[in-house]
Amino acid sequence: MEFNIHSIVFLIFSVITLGGGLGTVTSRNLIHGAVYLIVSLFGVAGLFILLSAPFLAAIQVLVYIGAIAILIIFAVMLTRSMTRMTEIYNRQWSLSLVVSALLFVLLLVGIILPVWGPGTANAALQPSELVATTVDLGVAFVDGNQFVLPFEVASLLLTAAMIGAIVIARDRD
């Protein structure tokens, strides 16, 4: 493996991401867990920048750290005894173990083996010369031959999510 500044930065961001993730699941204080999660999400934003996807990195910070992390902290505040978790595992740990194992296998078969597995040429690792910009993304969103339908469906999905959230959160009236 070639050792250059790029791989050092990749290593740093990987450590931040994985370390933050580890802290999230092992922390007994839910707020600390949320802070670790934010650290981990920052690491992911850094990885996006290394992949020359600055738009996704900004979205990562804006949506995941600016909105979802805040929402998680709000949600934690809605629960009781958030600073004194007596046990890390709850009753569903076996179920989540199965799900994560399945996800891992899926990633292994779907992404890792086809790209890095035996029988794949190293040439496949070369990044594409074609660099798509955020403008291209915008054009593709509203092009009748490309993604205009998913674009509108995304809006519909967001509407449904908001209505669902309001119905669940305000079921008392």
């Binding site: 804006l62 949506v63 909105a67 929402l71 709000f74 999510a161 959230a165």
Partner: peptide
């Protein structure tokens, strides 16, 4: 929490 949820939906819309 509801304000947070409404904000989240709008945030994703801006994306």
């Amino acid at each position: 929490y509801i304000y947070g949820l409404v904000f989240l939906v709008f945030d994703v819309e801006m994306v």
